[in-house]
Design a protein around this nucleic acid. Sequence first.
DNA 1: GAGATATTCACCCGTTTGGGTGAATGTTGC
DNA 2: GCAACATTCACCCAAACGGGTGAATATCTC
Lengths: 111, 111
Amino acid sequence: MSLDHTLAALADPTRRAILQRLSGGEARVTDVAARFPISLNSVSKHIRVLERAGLVRRRVAGREHLLTLDQRPLDEVAAWVEQTRAFWSKRLDALEALLVAEDDHDHKEQP
Amino acid sequence: MSLDHTLAALADPTRRAILQRLSGGEARVTDVAARFPISLNSVSKHIRVLERAGLVRRRVAGREHLLTLDQRPLDEVAAWVEQTRAFWSKRLDALEALLVAEDDHDHKEQP
DNA sequence: GAGATATTCACCCGTTTGGGTGAATGTTGC
DNA sequence: GCAACATTCACCCAAACGGGTGAATATCTC
């Protein structure tokens, strides 16, 4: 499972901002870097992390590297989160049901 | 926004496994640690990371620390992922629509 | 009070991370 | 061919991470 790489990549605000920038369309490394106060080199490293996580794909055209998003790792994250959330909710619902049942019981005990 | 802490906490497989363990109900630190090949001390550190992210709450009862889940940070992650996914999809749908429109145009050009 | 139990605190260690700089590589355009 | 451009490579640095050990603290139990 590549959840590790994906979640780690998403855990950095600069990288999330890069993804947001790319959601506006294909862009070069330099274009992406222009919006950040850090060096082009650091942005390049962040992009590589996003690439390793599969969130960004690179198309080399001459001296330019065009970057686009890949949604699939995000789909995996969504699937994991929803599955986990559903499981936790079920537990909490069961607990609540149990408490309500006990409450009903109490009401019956006190006419 | 605490997305940073939450995503970083979730990016580690041991920590996700701890959460899974806790989804089975309240447990002590030692109980949680029993399932992992690493030291109790390391598990304790992972638990603290999960606490800092708000995913786990601790209730001290005498010498025992009882741990429970808190779903809210996971809800935040779900909200961010779904919002981002929706935005990306919209872009991709728009792109596809554009391509389809061009395709239609082509068809009209070739009777 | 003494010993066992549960947990954290204070360190040590090797690796990764996020930032930086300067040089190297490859491409474009004149 | 040469200068400008786009990007990465190869380093440096401080901080954080994930693991470990041993000691300290607090609580329970006898």
